[in-house]
């Protein structure tokens, strides 16, 4: 194995991850991209999405909400507005957030559609990440609330 890369995921509230890993895959603005050790310097805008990193054969999943990723001198820094490891995700809260966002979108009027969509996206990413990490059997279908 050709060395490791240092991954740091920082949010305004805390340091989420700081670890030597084998590979990182993040969701950039134009889709997923992978970073291996000794990657060329890179600065990439991230969209709300999944990120995962491989360490000693096991894969960890994360939900990332917006931000930038920088790769420099074998160190990858992800500056995110919010980020959680799969095991930290509050599934119940994400479910509720999804319901709320869907309800708003259904009403359609007097709402900030972009904001509701962003909220929906965040909730979906969290659920997907929880599912990928095996914390959820399947992503439950949305309930049709009133």
């Amino acid at each position: 194995m050709a060395g490791k890369i240092l991954l740091e995921v920082i949010t305004p509230d805390r340091l989420v991850v700081r670890d030597e890993v084998d590979m990182v895959i993040a969701t950039g603005i134009d889709g997923e991209f992978g970073v291996l050790p000794n990657h060329a310097p890179l600065l990439c805008l991230l969209q709300t999405g999944e990120a995962r990193f491989k360490k000693d054969g096991s894969i960890e999943y994360m939900a990332i909400t917006g931000g930038v990723a920088e790769v420099f001198e074998n160190k990858m820094t992800i500056l995110a507005d919010a980020a959680e490891l799969a095991r930290e995700i509050d599934v119940k809260r994400a479910m509720k957030a999804r319901e709320r966002a869907l309800k708003r979108l259904r009403q359609r009027e007097k709402i900030d559609v972009a904001r509701a969509e962003a909220a929906l996206r965040r909730a979906m990413v969290r659920l997907k990440v929880a599912h990928r990490a095996g914390r959820l059997e399947s992503i439950p279908p949305e309930t049709m609330g009133e």
């Binding site: 310097p41 890179l42 600065l43 990439c44 805008l45």
Partner: peptide, 27 residues
């Protein structure tokens, strides 16, 4: 001074993240 790969263009990244510097300052 090292050359970076920018994705998307540097200016576009800046356009996205510059408004957030108010958040950073305020926080």
């Amino acid at each position: 001074q090292i050359e970076y790969i920018y994705e998307p263009k540097a200016q576009e990244i800046l356009r996205q993240i510059l408004p957030k510097s108010i958040n950073v300052q305020l926080y």
